[in-house]
């Protein structure tokens, strides 16, 4: 039954009006023509976004004096591989282990956030229960709580469980978050008609089954975006991993911070390592940048 055509929606007058407004809005998006100035301005912005990365490529492909060279060539040098290799094999940095850890943590956390957020979002959007409204408000309110300030007890907690320097210490506190629940609630609310759920229930599908085989597939676009943002956020996270992990078992940002903490610092090596560590996210950006853009823009409309 899940594959059948969606039932013809019966619109209430208010909903119909809302939809009309929405369509209007789409038609009336400002159609101003950008002047040459507009393009020039955006061009400069784009240049400023890329220039620091390009400059670090120039330094990373040079030698230890490149970072301070006033006449640095605009064409990359030939030492990039060599420098990147030096960064990745520095015994104090554990680069490969860090890469593995970062991939493990970011994928696990993304998968878990998507699963638990969709589950909770489904409950908030489509199931009726006492306290639904206040609980959702509570979740949204927690987003404004700077939980980062609880690091001392959190650290004590991790020490208690013997989790210092383990990946559990990073993964477990991040398994689900308020933003994810809120985001999925919003999406499920508007994307899944109540009657599909109701129909499935009447047909005898268990609640979890209707979640799994109806809600989850329909929620996929929003879930993908949530996964992407969680992935980026987890990959770039530094404060907590830096506290709870050590140089022997780091994530990539922690490992990068070690590249610089050395008695002698060769910045062409540091920046080569930095670039290599950024490559996975650049790939992600190339593949899914469009999704990131539309994710930001959809999230904003609702916020």
């Amino acid at each position: 039954m899940t594959t059948g055509p969606a039932p013809i929606p019966l619109l209430s007058p208010a909903q119909a009006a809302r939809n009309r407004r929405r369509r209007m809005r789409r038609l009336t998006v400002a159609q101003r023509k950008p002047g040459i100035l507009g393009y020039a301005f955006l061009g400069v912005v784009l240049l400023l976004s890329i220039l620091p990365l390009y400059w670090s490529l120039l330094v990373a492909s040079g030698d230890s004096t490149s970072a301070r060279d006033p006449n640095l060539s605009w064409i990359p040098g030939v030492h990039f591989i060599e420098n990147a290799y030096a960064a990745m094999t520095n015994p104090a940095v554990n680069f490969w282990k860090a890469l593995g850890n970062s991939l493990l943590v970011s994928t696990t956390v993304s998968a878990s956030v998507v699963f638990f957020s969709t589950l909770a979002g489904y409950a908030f959007a489509k199931l009726k229960f006492k306290g639904r409204g206040p609980l959702l408000v509570f979740i949204v309110a927690t987003m404004a709580v700077p939980t980062q300030l609880g690091v001392v007890p959190l650290y004590l907690l991790m020490a208690q469980y013997g989790w210092i320097d383990t990946m559990q210490a990073i993964i477990v506190p991040a398994l689900v978050n308020a933003f994810g629940v809120f985001w999925m609630t919003q999406y499920v609310q508007q994307a899944i008609p109540d009657e599909i759920i109701e129909a499935a229930r009447v047909d005898g599908a268990s609640s979890f089954r209707s979640f799994w085989s109806i809600a989850l597939p329909i929620a996929r676009p929003a879930a993908t975006m949530l996964a992407l943002f969680t992935f980026v956020a987890t990959w770039t996270n530094f404060f907590w991993p830096f506290i709870v992990l050590t140089p022997q078992n780091p994530t990539l940002p922690v490992a990068l911070s070690l590249l610089q903490a050395n008695y002698f610092v060769d910045y062409s090596v540091v920046l080569a390592g930095t670039l290599v560590a950024t490559v996975p996210l650049i790939i992600l950006f190339v593949v899914a940048g469009k999704q990131l853009v539309s994710g930001i823009m959809q999230g904003a409309v609702k916020a």
Partner: peptide, 23 residues
């Protein structure tokens, strides 16, 4: 687009599993 994203994520997951196995 969605398929490409899924592919990207799948690839990364695969690499992660292999890498964490090594680690």
């Amino acid at each position: 687009l969605r398929a490409r994203t899924a592919l990207g994520i799948a690839t990364i997951t695969g690499v992660a599993l292999i890498a964490s196995g090594c680690a």
